[in-house]
């Protein structure tokens, strides 16, 4: 019998789930290898759990979701989080730096209808997570690698080092050193294949902190090459604003 796979959505944009559907060349092989038992982005037909593997997208922003993730954990053999929201609270964790009331009032005509938590938090803040895939969105190759590795019973090959290493491996000339651009690559976890720098766009840190990230030293250098304090704060406070290393650095540049 094929292992069962379920895909869950919490506070998120659905982009990481779509990355699974975006595996066009491999999608049929995936569907033959696992039984996609619950994936409402793809099909409204679902099969009840428990599930061998769950892919969890999104962050926890409501009390109801804080309960639901426990049920998902209960029903799942292996729980894989997909994306920056699930790993660190996502872009919606910008709320963690202010109050929901101040934001809701400026967006919604009737903010009183909202029932939401003051913070957006990572899945691992609520339940044990077996594998965390980073990125906004996740990298297609990493997603396939995780599924393939789980099916083969081996540990997935996932980088924890910096984006710089992928730039150097693919031969991209350093945007920071050769062009003076403010790049988060030296503090950001690899796994994207250094996609943005290869297209002349400095890394904006969507994979979150690399292991041993030295954000303070990087921020000092970014200032030396011309980035203002607010630019540095913005760099660290975007897709992984609530990742502890990035949060600490952005707070250090609060006006």
């Amino acid at each position: 019998m094929r292992p069962t796979l379920a895909v869950w959505k919490f506070a998120s944009c659905d982009g990481c789930q779509l990355t699974l559907l975006d595996c066009e060349d491999e999608l049929l092989a995936v569907a033959e290898s696992v039984e996609i038992a619950s994936f409402t982005e793809m099909s409204s037909a679902t099969v009840d759990g428990p599930y061998d593997v769950s892919l969890v997208e999104g962050s926890i922003t409501t009390a109801a979701d804080a309960e639901r993730i426990r049920a998902v954990r209960e029903a799942s053999g292996i729980l894989v989080t997909i994306g920056a929201c699930a790993a660190a609270g996502g872009i919606q964790a910008l709320r963690n730096f202010t109050t929901v009331a101040s934001l809701a009032g400026s967006v919604y005509a009737h903010p009183e209808y909202l029932d939401t938590l003051e913070t957006s938090t990572a899945i691992s803040d609520h339940v044990p997570v077996d594998i965390e895939l980073r990125g906004c969105p996740v990298d297609r190759h990493q997603l396939l690698e995780a599924i393939t590795a789980l099916l083969a019973g081996r540990r997935p090959v996932l980088a924890s080092y910096s984006v710089c290493q992928e730039c150097k491996q693919r031969g991209t000339v350093c945007l920071m050193v050769a062009h003076g651009q403010a790049c988060l690559g030296p503090a950001t976890r690899a796994g994207c294949g250094a996609l943005c720098p290869s297209l002349d766009r400095p890394c904006f840190g969507c994979f979150g902190p690399a292991e041993s990230a030295n954000t303070a030293s990087l921020a000092t250098r970014l200032g030396e090459i011309g980035a203002s304090g607010s630019e540095i704060r913005r760099l660290f406070r975007t897709f992984n604003a609530a990742a502890p290393e990035f949060e600490k650095e952005s707070v250090a540049h609060d006006a």
């Binding site: 995936v30 393939t148 099916l151 083969a152 081996r154 710089c164 350093c174 030296p186 030295n214 303070a216």
Partner: peptide, 30 residues
Amino acid sequence: AERCLSCGNCTLVCPTCFCSALDDVSDLSG
């Protein structure tokens, strides 16, 4: 160490650094 980013750039631009890692990977066909 306070300044070092631990990013590895020095080793990757070095013309004599020779360290490598091996990864065993599989695809869905086995």
